[in-house]
Amino acid sequence: MSFRTNRFGGAEVVPFPGRTPGAAASGTKLPVLIILHQESSTPGRVGNALRALGHRLDIRRPRFGDPLPDTLDRHAGAVFFGGPMSANDPDDYIRREIDWIEIPLREQRPFLGICLGAQMLAMQLGARVAPHAQALTQIGYYPIRPTAAGRALCPNWPAQVYHWHREGFELPAGAELLAEGDDFPIQAYCSGNAFGVQFHPDVTYAMMHCWTTRGYDGLSAPGARERHHHFADRAVYDAAERAWLDHFIGDWLARRPVLAQAAE
């Protein structure tokens, strides 16, 4: 059975300041490959940002039988999203996704891993993914600190960002640390044109309601924030996280090779 949506549009585009939604959506820009891990998952605010830049979304769910492309020649980049599973799980689709990440690395195409996606990228690069030694989690808003490399790449990092994870990862050999944290030190990193973030800039207000309702049992885990703190902190920190995402996504896609840009 396949839950592949492969819809190039269809969802609401949330406008960003100074940008007209779909202004570049003339059909000339390559789509972005979107990998989701649950039937009801959406690309959230990352999808909105990509559509606002004029990119269609090629949404696939390998967990439910959707194939992965043999090359990214026909895509502007790829985004692997999160999920409740672990990069250490033995499921075939987990292994296939981790192995597939070798393609954007080899082709030097833009790749973005979010939470589970960042852990899959780390594992493809040879790093270890594991739970916290004291079984701590990050569920809610937590502070991050951009490194000098992170500030040079993208200014105005938010003071706190939204998380929902039980595992973290080591910094892969040869990768550059972009942001760090306390209980989970590696918060953002890059290796060439591939980026991984442990946090969730993709989460919309509606998604937060869904996650804190359906995943309510996770809110009692060690280190997790109580549900009401998720919404109170969002009122304080979300505008900065959204502005950071808007800036980051545009620069991230611009990193694709010159020959790939000429083909659009």
Results as ranks from 00 to 15, higher is better:
Glu180Ala: 10
Ala232Gly: 09
Glu167Asn: 13
His200Phe: 01
Gln119Asn: 02
Ile186His: 05
Tyr142Cys: 03
His55Glu: 12
Ala122Tyr: 06
Trp211Gln: 09
Ile139Asp: 10
Ala23Leu: 13
Tyr142Gln: 10
Asn156Gly: 04
Gly192Asp: 03
Tyr93Leu: 00
Gln38Phe: 01
Pro67Tyr: 07
Leu125Thr: 09
Ser26Ala: 13
Arg145Thr: 15
Phe16Ser: 14
Ala263Cys: 04
Pro84Cys: 08
Gly44Val: 02
Tyr162Leu: 15
Ile144Ser: 03
Gly174Ile: 07
Gln124Cys: 10
Ile34Arg: 00
Met120Gln: 12
Ser2Gly: 01
Pro146Gly: 12
His165Pro: 09
Leu253Asn: 11
Ala133Ile: 08
Asn193Val: 02
Asp182His: 12
Pro84Arg: 03
Leu57Ala: 09
His165Phe: 11
Ala188Asp: 15
Arg4Asn: 04
Glu12Ser: 11
Ile144Cys: 06
Gly117Val: 06
Leu253Cys: 01
Tyr162His: 02
Gln198Asn: 02
Ile144Lys: 09
Ala239Ser: 07
Arg61Met: 05
Tyr216Asp: 11
Leu153Arg: 12
Ala240Pro: 05
Arg4Ile: 00
Ser26Ile: 03
Gln108Asn: 14
Pro155Cys: 05
Asn6Arg: 06
Arg45Glu: 01
Leu177Gln: 07
Ile94Gln: 09
Pro146Thr: 03
Asp202Pro: 05
His132Arg: 04
Gln124Thr: 11
Tyr189Ala: 11
Thr137Gln: 05
Arg96His: 15
Pro31Tyr: 06
Trp157Asn: 09
Thr20Phe: 14
Thr71Trp: 05
Arg7Gly: 03
Leu177Arg: 06
Glu264Asn: 02
Trp252Ala: 00
Trp211Cys: 08
Arg227Glu: 04
His75Cys: 10
Ser2Leu: 00
Asn156Leu: 04
Gly215Leu: 02
Asp238Pro: 06
Ala24Arg: 12
Pro143Phe: 08
Ala232Cys: 11
Leu57Lys: 06
Gln138Trp: 08
Ser191Glu: 11
Arg7Glu: 12
Asp89Trp: 09
Pro43Leu: 03
Pro172Asn: 05
Ala254Glu: 04
Gly22Met: 09
Gly77Ile: 00
Arg74Cys: 08
Val129Trp: 07
Ala149His: 15
Gly18Ser: 14
Val236Phe: 11
Ala148Trp: 02
Gly83Asp: 12
Phe80Arg: 00
Val258Gly: 06
Ala188Val: 14
Arg45Trp: 04
Arg151Glu: 14
Phe8Tyr: 13
